[in-house]
Design a protein around this nucleic acid. Structure first.
Length: 285
DNA sequence: AATTCTTACAACCGCAGTTCG
DNA sequence: GCGAACTGCGGTTGTAAGAAT
C-alpha cells in the first residue's frame, strides 16, 4: 500500500526560493512557531510542499544558523565525528552549533573528502590509502592512522584478536567499542592493520545499570524514551518529548539523563564510568 | 569574448521511524 | 493493533558562479 504524496505536486513551486517566499515563511514561523509542516504552506500562503518549507527553514532561514566558512577546528571535529559516526550527518551537526546536517554533508563532500585524500586517508574508512609502491619509506599503516587522524593506541597483545582499549589524542579516556576479527589467512598487511569496526552502538546504559543496581523494578517500565531523548536532547529543539508520551525511566524528571551523567550520544561526562565511551576529546570549546 | 569544465551548495526525493486516531 | 499521516534523515540532483581553456 503506497503512501499518498505529502502535497499536491501540481500546485506547488519547486526550485530556488524567492525573497518573498522566504519572508512569508519567516513571518509565519515567527508568528506561529515551527511544526505542522504539512499545513504550514497553505496557512502561510506559500505554494510549496511542507517538506520544502521545513528544509528551507532548517537549512537556510533559521536565525541561529552560523553562516560563513568552516574553521579549522570545525573541520577537525567533523573528521573526528565522522570517523566515529559515519554519515550520520544530523548527529554530527548536533555537535556543531549553528551548522546544519545538509551544510556539513555538502562541506564534507566538497572539501573534507579531498582534504583527507590529500592526506592519504580514505574518507570513508578513515584508514590510510594503501599505495603498493614505495611502502618501505612510508610509516606503517597503523602509524599513519595514529598520526593522521586521532590517536588510537592498541594495548592488546598481538595474540589477542580484540582491542582492549584505545585512546584519543591528549586524553587517557578509554574506549572499548572497537573490535576486529582475527583473519589468520589474510595478507600480512591486514595483520598489521586491524579491521576497525567503527559501527557505533548506542544504547541506554543507565537503564541497564539501574536495573543491575536494583533501582528499576522488574515490573517497572523501561520502555525506551525517544531516541533523541536518550541522547540527552531532552527539552531541546531536537527533542519533542514534551509533547509526546515519551517515558522517563524510573519516573524521574525529564532531563534526568543529563544529571545522571550522560550527554549527547550517551557519552559519559567526565566522572561517569558506565557509558559506552568517553568523549572528552570531542567536547566543544 | 565565448565556451567548457569544475566547484559549491541549495533543494529534491525516497525511505524509514514515529505519532496519532 | 493497525494504518494513515507526519517528520526527519541521507543520498542525489540541479544549477549558479567561478576558473580554465
Amino acid at each position: 500500500m503506497g503512501r499518498s504524496p505529502c502535497c499536491e505536486k501540481a500546485h506547488t513551486n519547486k526550485g530556488a526560493w524567492t525573497k518573498e517566499e522566504d519572508e512569508r515563511l519567516i513571518a509565519y514561523i515567527k508568528a506561529h512557531g515551527e511544526g505542522c509542516w504539512r499545513s504550514l504552506p497553505k496557512a502561510a500562503g506559500l505554494l510549496r510542499c511542507g517538506k520544502s518549507c521545513r528544509l528551507r527553514w532548517i537549512n537556510y532561514l533559521r536565525p541561529d544558523l552560523k553562516r560563513g566558512n568552516f574553521t579549522e577546528e570545525e573541520d577537525e571535529l567533523i573528521i573526528k565525528l565522522h570517523s566515529l559516526l559515519g554519515n550520520k550527518w544530523s548527529l554530527i551537526a548536533g555537535r556543531l552549533p549553528g551548522r546544519t546536517d545538509n551544510e556539513i554533508k555538502n562541506y564534507w563532500n566538497t572539501h573534507i573528502r579531498r582534504k583527507l585524500i590529500n592526506r592519504g586517508i580514505d574518507p570513508t574508512t578513515h584508514r590510510p590509502i594503501i599505495q603498493e609502491s614505495s611502502q618501505d619509506s612510508k610509516p606503517t599503516q597503523l602509524e599513519a592512522i595514529t598520526s593522521n587522524t586521532f590517536n588510537i593506541s592498541f594495548t592488546s597483545p598481538s595474540s589477542t584478536p580484540k582491542i582492549e582499549s584505545t585512546s584519543f589524542q591528549g586524553t587517557s579516556e578509554k574506549i572499548s567499542m572497537f573490535t576486529f576479527k582475527e583473519e589468520k589467512e589474510e595478507c600480512p598487511t591486514k595483520e598489521k592493520l586491524p579491521d576497525l569496526n567503527l559501527e557505533l552502538r548506542i544504547s541506554l546504559p543507565d537503564v541497564v545499570d539501574r536495573r543491575r543496581q536494583g533501582l528499576v523494578g522488574e515490573g517497572e517500565s523501561t520502555r525506551a524514551r525517544c531516541f533523541k531523548c536518550s541522547l540527552g536532547m531532552i527539552n531541546g529543539m531536537e527533542c519533542r518529548c514534551g509533547r509526546t508520551r515519551c517515558d522517563v525511566v524510573g519516573g524521574s524528571n525529564k532531563g534526568s539523563d543529563i544529571s545522571n551523567g550522560f550527554d549527547f550520544l550517551g557519552l559519559a561526562k567526565k566522572e561517569t564510568t558506565t557509558s559506552l565511551f568517553g568523549f572528552r576529546s570531542l567536547e566543544m570549546i
